[in-house]
Nucleic acid binder design. Structure first.
Lengths: 161, 161
DNA sequence: CCGGGGTTGTTATACTATAACATAACGAAT
DNA sequence: ATTCGTTATGTTATAGTATAACAACCCCGG
């Protein structure tokens, strides 16, 4: 696999479908691993997916509250931690924000294209990039373990502004 | 140029030399550009370089204070911003910390190997990685502008633990 | 029914960063 | 040397991000 969603990344699509698929996948993965996808965790996952761009923990918190839930930051962070551990979401380091994982379950560290204009993010998993990095690290005797790759720029739709 | 400091990255070396060289380089670059390398900025740059691992803004602040300076966060952040703008330091997104730039002046976005054990960081500028990423982005019609690449793992010295 | 692991509630606090406005230092032009 | 605009710094307050610590709860297996 070089690229999982070659074009879909920034393309228009029915996002409700994504959300549903993500929830279904999450349920499956958690069942497999005996992870408990509780009501809270599911709600947080849904909120992450609902946004078409990465969301901060406190935005999620606000939305939970708007939804009648009266919680505090730790609740949200715990849910996020759980989802991160199980590979259901990613954290975008350069934004302090979280985004749904495009192909959960498989072990992978994401590579992200982040549009500086519309804030949308596409997740890649390019083998060549991964290899180039692994080689480069190996050259220095470095044993790579996890990679944070976040590319800023303009997505196709935003290049004419 | 593929790699600038092939082995030196994690190798032992007289770090005082690095600091001096960095300060000298910084002075030269600022002179060239009419940037003012003030006392404060120089002190901050020195503190960043003095640490062999990335330092947080508040650690720098502490050290400035220990040094008789009675300042507040904005002072430090302003100095850091200046140094970042002029390519004299880098920000490590995944650590919220700052580290001296190994080859200032040249335009480049760093690639970093970050040791999870000793926290030291090596800066690379691997052409193959850069190209792989540029290609990958291009495949998606994405116009890349800046790349954040931070690889976690174990440096040569820390792999036996 | 009991017990124990995992989950959530709750309060407080640490850590990271910036807004906004006042003052001071610098440097080019007169 | 004086003036003036620009850039840099001081200062206070606050926004934004994340975790520590402990109590209460719940689910499920024995």
């Amino acid at each position: 696999m070089t690229d999982t969603y070659p074009d879909q990344a920034f393309a228009k699509h029915d996002h409700r479908h994504c959300i549903k698929a993500a929830l279904r996948e999450a349920a499956r993965i958690c069942r497999e691993r005996n992870g408990r996808l509780t009501e809270q965790r599911q709600r947080v996952l849904e909120l992450v997916w609902k946004s078409h761009k990465p969301v901060g923990a406190y935005v999620i918190l606000e939305q939970l509250r708007a939804d009648g839930f009266n919680g505090a930051p730790p609740t949200v962070y715990r849910a996020l931690d759980f989802l991160l551990e199980h590979g259901l979401i990613h954290r975008i380091e350069s934004l302090n924000a979280y985004t749904g994982c495009a192909h959960p379950g498989e072990q992978h560290s994401g590579q992200f294209l982040i549009c500086s204009h519309c804030q949308r993010v596409a997740e890649l998993d390019d083998l060549k990039v991964k290899k180039a990095i692994r080689n480069s690290a190996a050259l220095h005797g470095f044993k790579a373990d996890h990679q944070v790759i976040e590319i800023r720029g303009l997505c196709p739709q935003c290049q004419d502004h």
